[in-house]
Simulated assay, not measured.
Amino acid sequence: MHICLSDGWGGLEMYPARIIPELQRQGWEPHGLALAGSRVAASLSAAGIEPLTMASRGRALLQVGRVLAYLKHHAVGVLHCHKSSDLRLGALLASLRPGLKLFFTDHMGVTRPKKDLYHRWAYGRVTRLFAISEATRARNLAAFPLPAERIRRLYLGVDLSPYVPRLDEAARESLRRELVLAPDQVAIGLPGRLTPGKGQALWLEGLARLRAIAPDLAWHGVLIGGLTAREGSDEAYVGRLRERVAELGLEKDVTFTGFRSDLPRLFEALDIVCVPSRNEAFGLTVVEAMAAGKAIVGANSGAIPELLEADCGRLAASEEPQAWAEAMAELGRDAVLRRRLGQAARRRAERQFDVRAHVRALTDEYAGIVGHAVGT
């Protein structure tokens, strides 16, 4: 059972529904526990399972007997939590029903020590804690009251198949026109939630400098992401981004797409994908762009340098717009280089980030099989 009692919507909340189809293909029977009416609950339903739902996190604790009865009825032996606040329920269930295995994935990257009495109790019942990158594992080792052997690095995985190009030239050009792209323009995209940590403001400054250092380059920026809180974005920040676009004179040079459910197809319309996130715990957007075979510029901070090897893309300092402008200019001027980097990125995604391998490693842990290449 995957437990995610969150009313937000980001990579953490999307994770259970992302892997459920592959869990089923590999012979497991997944269940879910989510907040009633949440996007998590809706995503689990869309993935093919009807989750057990609770009105609130507090209600879930008060109805622990109901959850235990559900676990017994469905012979559930593994719990997997994705928010640290959900460990209260997970640890309580594991305490009340000996034999339950409890797993926790730290999707966010812990930022402060968690070694007080409560956290020693809760994490003491965790069978395995998964870090989603080496960068976060280093922080986990320092912050959590667990021995090193119970903290394992397990990179996230994606289903690579949707990212294989499908559009013919006419459909691709039609999509580019929808994004306000002229035929001769290099399309520079930035997908992700519109929140300060994702670096959109830095990217806009980089685009303004790109215009200055490469006046001969025809380009257009495509900012992909929801514009409302319901879609996971910071509405005040979105307003500031629009104001900055106007101040920089980029109104005709940048398209705000709003939320799009067709990201794999949007990648086909892009030439360069930028991921300027600061201190990213993993960098799922980087992997998705790699799967799509795109030339990528990523921030040189957090886990992104682990994902984006030198032959797969370029790294730029997360606080230096000039570095971003120079990287975008280099890739924008060289279509052959973009193609080579994109092909190398796709091959790395196939080797390292396929959801099938991720789920095999995960279920080996569920089953207590030691020795799979999960990381140390």
Rank of each mutant, 00 (worst) to 15 (best):
R340L: 11
A329G: 12
T363V: 05
R346S: 11
F353N: 09
H358N: 13
E326G: 06
A327T: 05
A349W: 06
R360N: 07
F353C: 08
L331V: 01
A327P: 08
L341Q: 08
L341M: 15
L341F: 13
M328A: 12
L337C: 04
A327D: 10
A349D: 12
L337M: 12
R339P: 01
A357L: 08
E330V: 01
R339F: 06
T363D: 05
A344S: 14
A345V: 13
D354M: 12
G368C: 07
W324Q: 01
A335N: 00
L337K: 05
E365T: 13
W324M: 03
M328E: 03
L331Y: 00
F353H: 13
Q343R: 15
R351S: 13
A345R: 10
E365A: 15
Q352P: 00
R347N: 04
D354C: 09
Q343C: 04
D364M: 10
D354L: 10
E330A: 04
A357T: 11
Y366G: 05
Q352G: 01
R340Y: 03
A344M: 12
L362G: 14
A345L: 13
D364C: 00
A361Q: 14
A327Y: 00
D354W: 00
A345C: 04
G368L: 01
I369V: 15
L341N: 10
L337Y: 03
L337N: 02
V336F: 03
R333P: 01
R356I: 09
D334V: 02
L331I: 07
E350T: 12
R338K: 08
D334S: 09
V336P: 02
M328G: 01
Q352T: 12
V355L: 15
A344G: 01
W324D: 00
Q343T: 14
A361I: 03
R346H: 06
D354H: 08
E350H: 09
R347K: 13
I369R: 04
A335T: 10
W324N: 08
R333A: 00
L362S: 05
A329S: 15
R360A: 15
D364V: 00
I369L: 06
R346M: 08
Q352I: 07
L341H: 12
R348M: 06
A329D: 02
D364G: 14
R346W: 11
L362H: 08
G368H: 04
H358A: 07
R340N: 11
I369P: 02
Q343N: 06
L362I: 07
T363L: 02
A367H: 02
D334C: 10
R340M: 01
R356M: 07
R339C: 10
R333H: 13
E365M: 06
Y366P: 01
D334I: 06
R351H: 11
D364T: 01
W324K: 09
A367I: 00
W324A: 02
D354V: 06
R333E: 06
R347T: 07
A325W: 05
V355H: 08
A325R: 02
R339I: 02
D334Y: 07
L331F: 03
M328S: 01
